[in-house]
Design a binder for these strands. Structure first.
Lengths: 345, 345
DNA sequence: GCGCCTTGTGTGACCGGTCACATTCATGCC
DNA sequence: GGCATGAATGTGACCGGTCACACAAGGCGC
């Protein structure tokens, strides 16, 4: 162990080489596990490495070899539960593969700003993971130059707007379908929907799943209410819906929206689930503790993040252990906020 | 603009140099804004840069100059509101200074695992920001080698466990003091406290502030209840507190704990704020939409993150515009969950 | 006893920048 | 006119690794 107190600069392979009495190339071979190194030599080198506290300089490695063992996550948001969980999943998998994780936030959805941010991320070297749940993310994905290794975390599987690139997704359509069926099966005539902002001009997968379930049940199809991402949007939407006595079941694009809706219903004096049933999306950590606790669809965001990394990892190193299909199955969690419509309906 | 379709490797300064008919050093001077370059030469170089789409290679820059224009945030958590907001603040400020942001998650609080993660973060080059709100973070801060530039985001200002390093903090003591005083001023005899896990063996700043306010008011000082970080911990603590009819006011270490407490009180049939008042900490985005909406203390985590970066930035570049004192003032937000004790007390 | 392949090791160039120093030329001053 | 001075530019080494190739020694076939 290095006991010289002097804060000198860290040992390089040449330092190790002289200490072990070999050439720097031999040291390089040892740290890369090259087969043709005599065991006794390897031993000496390893001893020198240990003594000098040598660590391979990641920057030099990146410059010389081109491979940078790093990924950058581009996202429009870091605090929302889903986004943050994806990031966590990516970090988890990256750490296991000893990759570094960078993060870039798409503050604005304006094209030039997004392009600049993509450029910055590209400068960092390594691969890119773009969370394309929102307009900023979708634009970012589209702005990534073709030669850059990138994986998109997208809403809808079919032909993502980013072109012909690898991507991962959760089956939002199926999840919405399941949640809607659940509400219908309780006896509600139809289910209203408060949508999260769509990432593209096309209707979102969640909207499609909801619509499909209604159609299958022959239920009337109300206009979806446009929400935002946060509880404030849900609150505004909930206020409108609360006015309509025909509304007895509301599906929300995420749990935050659902929270706002619950609050609005409470303020309007409509009981949940007595008069109105509410269901959310994501199963955020607080949803189980709300009063009433929230019926929702649990999505495995962390697993999604891990899958995104695995896919990118396969692209970056042609070892190419591209996982079969990283779609995890959404799971309906029934809690207090959903129930049969009141008898007096 | 580069129109050759060939996906060739990006232009280097030598490519630019030959294109502009100068030496690579002159190109270097231009991109670094060195004064002694003839205007006409500069113009030619800039034109070549534009034509070839040259971007300075960040890796090479880091290797050659030592400065890496990057910071890594070490944190035990990415999804909790406070942590995620700090990260966002760091990223915001870093982006403005065109620094790259890396992230490392301290999955375990075990010393070896933490040390390894610190090493990894150090390998990335650049500075470190350690969120030391929990045991893992505190250990990480302590494990950072002395020669590494690091800023700690800590709970308590006085002599942080990490040694004599720059750090930032919010005035948690004052915040807890204010919240406690608020509850006492409503007429409660005393205020119970559900604590977040302490980052060190010493009592946390929040606990201290709460205790101090009780002392000043001459109120009895109940034992703080140990919670965890999430709503589950609050729920467990709330169950215990709900049994005791003498409990009329509860201060919680964060909003998630408060949510769990609210739920437990609801399950026990104790009304809020009628029978029991509850206050939280952080003002998470959902707190305003709970039923009852939560009285809490708003903390500027994003600002804290920005301040942490600014401080680190000053250390990394001796331009040293070390901000005066980056402590933002916590703000009490009174909502529905707190009120006077019921008359029948 | 020669050629050939394999194993173990070393040398020089290179990745794309920066840094320290050398060089050239115009200018100002005595 | 000679010389110091400073502006404008170029040259070579270097950061810490990797890569392609050279080279010596040992084993084997014939």
């Amino acid at each position: 162990m290095n006991v010289t107190g002097h804060t000198r600069r860290p040992a390089s392979i040449r330092d190790v080489a002289t200490a072990a009495g070999v050439s720097y190339q031999t040291v390089s071979r040892v740290i890369n596990g090259h087969p043709s190194v005599k065991p006794s030599t390897r031993e000496r080198v390893l001893a020198a490495i240990d003594e000098l506290g040598f660590r391979r300089n990641a920057t030099a490695l990146a410059l010389a070899s081109g491979r940078s063992r790093a990924v950058t996550v581009l996202t429009a948001n870091t605090t929302h539960y889903g986004y943050a969980s994806i990031l966590r999943g990516v970090e988890e998998a990256a750490r296991a593969a000893s990759y570094a994780v960078g993060i870039g936030v798409l503050e604005s959805a304006e094209q030039p700003a997004v392009a600049a941010e993509v450029q910055r991320a590209a400068d960092a070297g390594g691969g890119l993971i773009v969370i394309a749940y929102d307009p900023a993310g979708v634009r970012a994905l589209a702005a990534v130059p073709a030669e850059l290794p990138v994986v998109g975390v997208v809403e809808t599987p079919a032909s993502p707007p980013g072109g012909d690139r690898p991507w991962v997704w959760t089956d939002d359509r199926e999840a919405a379908h399941e949640a809607t069926r659940h509400l219908l099966s309780l006896g509600h005539e139809t289910v209203h929907y408060v949508a999260i902002p769509s990432s593209t001009r096309r209707t979102s997968a969640r909207t499609t799943g909801w619509r499909q379930a209604l159609k299958e049940a022959g239920a009337p199809e109300p206009r979806p209410v446009q929400g935002s991402w946060g509880p404030a949007g849900g609150h505004a939407a909930g206020r409108e819906l609360a006015k309509d006595p025909a509304v007895t079941a509301i599906l929300c694009g995420n749990d935050d929206l659902a929270l706002g809706v619950l609050r609005a219903l409470h303020e309007a004096g409509r009981s949940v689930p007595g008069e109105v049933s509410v269901a959310g999306f994501d199963d955020a950590p607080h949803s189980a503790y709300l009063t009433p606790s929230l019926t929702t669809v649990r999505l495995d965001f962390t697993g999604l993040g891990r899958a995104a990394f695995a896919l990118l990892h396969g692209v970056l190193e042609k070892s190419a252990q591209i996982a079969p299909h990283p779609v995890s199955v959404p799971e309906l969690v029934v809690r207090e906020s959903s129930g049969p419509p009141s008898a007096r309906g």
